[in-house]
Every structure is written in C-alpha cells, then in structure tokens.
Design a protein around this nucleic acid. Structure first.
Length: 693
DNA sequence: TTTAGGG
DNA sequence: CCCTAAA
C-alpha cells in the first residue's frame, strides 16, 4: 500500500518523462518568472479623464478667453456620450479577456505641449496664415491619435499629403499607421493585424533622422511635435527613466515599478523588476487588441474638441480615440499566471505599470523666439494642486514635449466571490473615481527623480532640449486627499497586509471589500517613493453612497467611466498568501563557529556533498538550529569563501587549513558524483587525498 | 522530506 | 538565511 505511490515512479514500466537534467537554475527560470508575473497584473492604462482634465486645464490657462472649464467639460462629455452611442454596436474585441489578460490601457489623446514665442501655444494654432493649417493639424492630430490608439505610435507627423487621406481614414479601424514620416504613404492602409509588425518596422526604420525631419517640418509649420511620452498616474513609484526615444516608442511601459531610490526590502521585488525590465522590445511585440471600446471614451484632444465642436467632420477622428489598449504583456504573462479562481477573493488589478514615459525632444531649430512665453510647459494649471510652471529663460532653447498618455495606477480590489458583477463594476468605478476624485496634480520626473521645486526653471531643473528628455516624465499624482480611514482602525491590516504589500507586490493596494486604504498603509515605503504621492483611495463606502451605478459624481472626472469598464479588466485571482505574517520572522543569524565549520568539513569529507541530511545527523545532530539546509548553505559559502582572497572574506575568519580542506573536499566530491545513491558510498575524501595525487 | 540552487 | 522546484 505504502509503496503504491512510489511504484509509479520506480516501476520500470512507467516512463518517466525525461526532464533534462539541466541545472536547476535553468529549469527553474521559467516558472520563476511566472511567479513574478503573477504580481504584475496587467492593468489598464489611463483614464482619459485624467488627460481630459489636463487638457482642459491647459486649455483654459492657455487661451486667454478661457472658456469655462465647465463648458469644456460639457462639450467633452457630450462628445463622449455620443461616441458611446456610436460605438455601441461595435464589437468589442475581448480576446484579451479570454486570455485572462486585461485591458491595460486606454490611451488618451496626446497632449502636445509646446511653447511658442509670443503665442500661447494653443492660441496660435488656429489662427493666422493657416486656417487650413489648423484643419490639417487637427486632422493630423486626430489621425495621429487613432494611430496611437492602434499602435501607440509615438510620432506625430505633419504630412501634407496625408492630410486628406487621414481624414477619411480615420474612420477605419484598419488604418494605416504606416510610414507616416514618409510623405508618400499617406494612402496606405494596413490591416490592423499588421500593425504590430508595421509599427515595429516603421518605427524601427524611422531612424532619428527621418523623425527629425518630419518633426522639423512640422515645426516649421508651427504645429506640435508629438513626441513620445506618456504620463502616468503614479501612485507608488517613480517611473523608470525611460530609455532613448527610438526605442521607446511602443512599449514604454515595461511595468517597472521600482525606481532607483526605492529598494524594497523584499528581495522578491528586485527579482520582479529585473524580470521586467529587460523584457523589452525584442520579444516585446505589442499585441494590442483594441477593444474598440464602447467602454472608453477618451478625452479628446484639446484642439480636437475644439474643432469637433464646430465641425462635425471631425467626429470620425474623434471616434478612434477611445480604445482600450491591451498590451502584449498581458498576453504574455497571463497565460502563465492564470490561476484558478479558487481563492476566496480575487482581485481586479489595474496595473499601474509604470510607464516609463519618455519625452523626446524634437530637435528644435526652426523656432526660436525670444519672447518668452515663459510657460514652457503649461498644462494643468488650475487645480489646487501643483502647477507646473516652468519658466524658461533661455531664449534659444525650447523644450518641446508632448504627453502621450496617462495611466492609471495599479489598483487592487478585493471583493467577495459572491459579489455580483455589478458590484464589482461599481467597486472598480469607485476605486477609480476615488483616485481621480481626489484631485490630481502633475509630477515631473526627471531621471527618475521627481522635480519638486516648481519654481525652478527648466534649465535649472535640467530639462533641456538638449538634455535627455528621454528621462523626463510626467505623472499624475493624486493629490493628498482625505483618508477616510485612519490607519488606526485597521490594526490588523497593518500587520499582515502591510507586510504583504511590501513583499508581495510592489504596489498592491488592497481594497478590501469595503475599505481600502491599505494601499497606503505602508507609507514608509511608498512615501519614500512619492512623498507627495499619497493617494487616498476613499473607502468605497464613503464613496459608494454617492457614486452609484457608474456615475461619476465628481466633475473632475472628465470622462464618465462606465462602470462597465470593469469588464475590460482582467480579473486576476490573487492567491492570498498570507504567508509570513507574523510567523515568519527571519531566523536569527547564527554564524558558524570555527568548530562547527570544522565539524562540517569533516563530515562532508566523509559523506560528500549531497547528503546533507547525513551530514546533519553525523555532525550536527544535536544542533537543532542547524538544519541540513543550513549546512548545505554553509558549505556553499565555505566553498566560496575558500575560493576568494582572504581580504575579501568577512566575518569570523576561518582557518585557512579548513578552507583548504573545503576546497579539496569540494573538488573531490564534485568529481565523484558524490551523491550516488549507490551502495557503499564513495570512499571518503581522506582516502582520496592520497589518491588524488 | 531532501536536495539543489537561486535570491 | 530564505524560498522553492524537484525529486
């Protein structure tokens, strides 16, 4: 009976799958990563609302006339609403859902920020010599947008030729994002399926030069330069400084959540990060599935809605603007992370995917204005919060930036299985609105560090056209808001969850089915990262009352996020591993004494490596605190120690004599396949010593 | 539980 | 030391 189980293995008739006996490390790699990914839940990016808001603000501050924000809002929402209707019959592609991936992002129109000499950037578009231009611009923008939606193409191109086509094309989902920088390709349309490829190629191909040219071209015409950048709504961490522009383009967001400054004590994290960081381009093909969403409405670009307001023709473009972006990351990871939904609760995770945003700087030559309209970057103005006002003094240098998208931070929502879908939706909604509702502000991150001094000039801050704008990023930070639940009332949470949060995932706020500030209960950590970033996710309760079915009470949310958006999220079950809450305190360190080392060495000499249990029994049988694993580890370190120069050794010095024995024993046993289940164990090293020579 | 390795 | 995949 007892043998039954064993038999399966040992029985000759049974073919045991041959598992390549590769080093464990190798064998493990895969699974390991999977684990890592588990925590990296795909998320959906941005809330158009956020962008909208910025746009709005930007608008109001930029244009002198200053339309009432409200008006803008109204328009905006209107558009959205209509859009929704229009889109309603579109099929939503939900492959991603099927795969368990999640909608990770929704892109919003890009916000182009440009400083113009004496002209308010915005104001200057529509006017003067180019009425046609403004049209063109809008067209381009729109198209650009749609492109963006499709492939997150990073470059905005001003191409005369494309103008007409784009316009009509904008309606197509299969829209060509082809070679925009090539004036000849305006007509081509590429099937969406080709997008990735295309994109990759084009972008890749688009060497800096071409881009540059294009940009310059644009510049001359006074339009905007769209560069690559995205803004993230970041709650926890600074974005990873992005790499160089060309590389970034399509996947800036590698889900890196760490930041140079923040090292979590949990080693897992680093692992995680590492796992992600590299992933990039190569294998990183973006398989985006657009959920042509009827779910998402994105805030139109400022100019766009300006236009759409008086020009119906613009609508088409507008329409492509909303989409949900699914990153391949989801696709890649999800499969492996697929977990049975057996846990008691699952979590809806929005991955905050820190996007490393990059803002490329377009080489700017054409423009120069001496006049200083100082606000080089002026978006987001009003709000109570931060206003990033940057004054640029240099006459010749301008910093051109465009913000591409904002992302929503990662959110974890915990909700009982028994909850209804509806409530799930609501919960998500609430969570999101809680964040948005709290108000947002923009944070500027340069080289991974936040630039806090609002009064510094861009120059002073190091944001120079000539500098690495690649490393410039923006993020939306929730302004500090009320924390409904003071930490005090969640004592228990502080114990376990905090720990969990820290260890399990870099950022895993847990919205308890009801409450939710856990997310921030590890301020120590978080704050290090974003001091100013406290986010308060209102406890749903607080919010819920006001927020009911998908309604966003707070006008600050420019976009009504249909609760339904939750559907687009991947529900990734999070296995609640309470794990080491209180229990797993790291054992106290107990350095091996020389005597112990000696005993160990001797035992190993005789037994060989690979028989740690025996070693343990033989030499440490009564040392309860030394497990065979410990012994093994110690041996490992001994071998290492022995192989390094004495100067590099630390701790209580081990007699060289012992170390020598360690080395020889190690050499011997590694050569003699020590373990060998075999009968009489291989002769002890001692004997060997002689033989060896 | 042990081993074997990586973190 | 810890954590885990494998055995």
């Amino acid at each position: 009976m007892v043998l039954k189980r064993r038999l399966e293995y040992g029985f000759s008739g049974y073919q045991i799958p041959v598992i390549p006996k590769a080093p464990r490390s190798v064998r493990r790699r895969g699974p390991r990563k999977k684990l890592v990914d588990d925590h990296q839940i795909c998320a959906f990016e941005l809330l158009a609302a956020v962008a909208g808001k910025l746009l709005q603000e930007s608008e109001s501050s930029a244009s002198s006339n200053a339309s009432e924000p409200k008006d803008l809002l109204g328009i905006h929402l209107d558009g959205i609403k209509q859009e929704r209707v229009e889109e309603n019959n579109k099929t939503v592609r939900s492959e991603c859902l099927d795969q368990g991936s999640c909608v990770e992002s929704a892109f919003i129109p890009e916000l182009a920020v440009k400083e113009h000499n004496s002209n308010p950037s915005l104001g200057d578009l529509p006017n003067t010599e180019n009425d046609s231009f403004s049209e063109r611009t809008s067209t381009l923008l729109s198209s650009d947008f749609s492109k963006k939606v499709d492939c997150e193409l990073k470059l905005g191109i001003c191409n005369d030729k494309t103008e007409g086509n784009l316009n009509s094309k904008a309606e197509d989902d299969t829209y060509a994002l082809g070679d925009l920088s090539n004036s000849k390709t305006g007509n081509e349309s590429v099937r969406q399926s080709e997008d990735e490829t295309k994109q990759g190629k084009d972008l890749t191909a688009a060497n800096p030069c071409s881009v540059k040219n294009t940009v310059e071209k644009c510049t001359n015409r006074k339009p905007l330069i769209n560069s690559d950048s995205s803004v993230q709504l970041s709650l926890y961490r600074d974005p990873l400084p992005s790499a160089s522009f060309p590389k970034h383009r399509n996947d800036v967001n590698l889900g890196i959540r760490d930041d140079d400054d923040n090292s979590f004590r949990c080693s897992k994290f680093s692992t995680k990060f590492r796992a992600f960081r590299p992933q990039p381009r190569n294998g990183y093909r973006r398989i985006r599935k657009m959920l042509t969403s009827k779910y998402w409405k994105v805030a139109p670009k400022l100019r766009d809605y300006e236009l759409s307001n008086n020009n119906e023709a613009m609508r088409p473009c507008f329409r492509n603007r909303k989409s949900i972006h699914v990153r391949d990351r989801c696709l890649r990871e999800v499969p492996s992370k697929r977990r049975r939904l057996c846990d008691r609760s699952f979590v809806v995770a929005y991955d905050q995917e820190t996007s490393s945003e990059s803002i490329s700087n377009a080489p700017e030559k054409g423009t120069k204005g001496d006049n200083c309209s100082s606000d080089a970057i002026n978006k987001k103005g009003n709000a109570a919060s931060t206003s990033v006002k940057v004054h640029q003094k240099s006459k010749d240098h301008k910093v051109k930036l465009s913000i591409k998208s904002f992302k929503i931070p990662e959110l974890y929502i915990e909700i009982p299985e028994t909850a209804t879908v509806g409530s799930l939706k609501r919960t998500v909604m609430e969570t999101v609105t809680a964040i948005l509702g709290g108000g947002l502000r923009v944070g500027v991150v340069l080289q991974g560090k936040k630039v806090r001094d609002d009064n510094r000039t861009l120059q002073q801050a190091g944001i120079l056209q000539s500098g690495n704008l690649d490393n410039l990023g923006f993020m939306l930070e929730p302004t500090l808001t009320q924390v409904p639940e003071s930490p005090k009332d969640s004592p228990h949470k502080l114990h376990c969850e905090t720990d969990q949060n820290l260890c399990r995932s870099p950022a895993s706020p847990v919205l308890g089915s009801g409450l939710s500030n856990d997310a921030f209960d590890s301020p120590s950590k978080m704050e290090q990262l974003h001091e100013s970033n406290h986010v308060a996710i209102h406890s749903p309760r607080t919010n819920t009352d006001t927020v009911t079915d998908g309604e966003v009470p707070d006008s600050r949310a420019l976009v009504t996020l249909p609760a339904v958006s939750a559907e687009a999220l991947a529900m990734v079950p999070v296995n609640q591993k309470p794990k080491r809450c209180e229990s797993s305190q790291r054992r106290t360190r107990r350095p091996f004494s020389v005597a112990e080392v000696e005993a160990l060495v001797e035992a190993v000499e005789i037994l060989g490596t690979g028989r740690w249990r025996d070693v343990k029994m033989r030499a440490f049988d009564n040392a309860d605190h030394r497990t065979y694993v410990d012994l093994k580890d110690k041996w490992k370190t001994l071998v290492h120690t022995a192989s390094i120069s004495p100067q590099q050794r630390r701790g209580e010095p081990v007699p060289q004599e012992l170390l020598d024995r360690v080395l020889s024993a190690h050499a011997y046993w590694s050569q003699h396949q020590s373990k060998q289940t075999g009968k009489h164990h291989v002769e002890p090293l001692k004997i060997m010593d002689a033989q060896a020579d």
